[in-house]
Amino acid sequence: MMLIPCPWCGPRDETEFVYGEAALERPADPHALSDQEWTDYLYFRDNPKGEHTERWFHRAGCHHWFTVERNTVTHVISAAYPPGKAEKS
């Protein structure tokens, strides 16, 4: 069970959180995208063995969504920050 550092509440047990998904930016105007580009956004995800940027929701806590940089092999969390801040694109 991971210890996830919520940017608002500090480190808490994983059971308090809900995993969202990969931290992707939603296209500002989906209609400007081709079918291919839109379905890439909808369905295609990297599945890296290593660093992954993802979103978690502190359901049993402050109800904030935030971004976590986690190594999928070691589970080492190198950063956690509110959405919109220092995000990788």
Partner: peptide
């Protein structure tokens, strides 16, 4: 639903 709406408000349309 709450989680979904919060996602949209906090992440997509802050």
């Amino acid at each position: 639903m709450f989680q979904h709406l919060e996602y949209l408000l906090q992440v997509v349309w802050p």
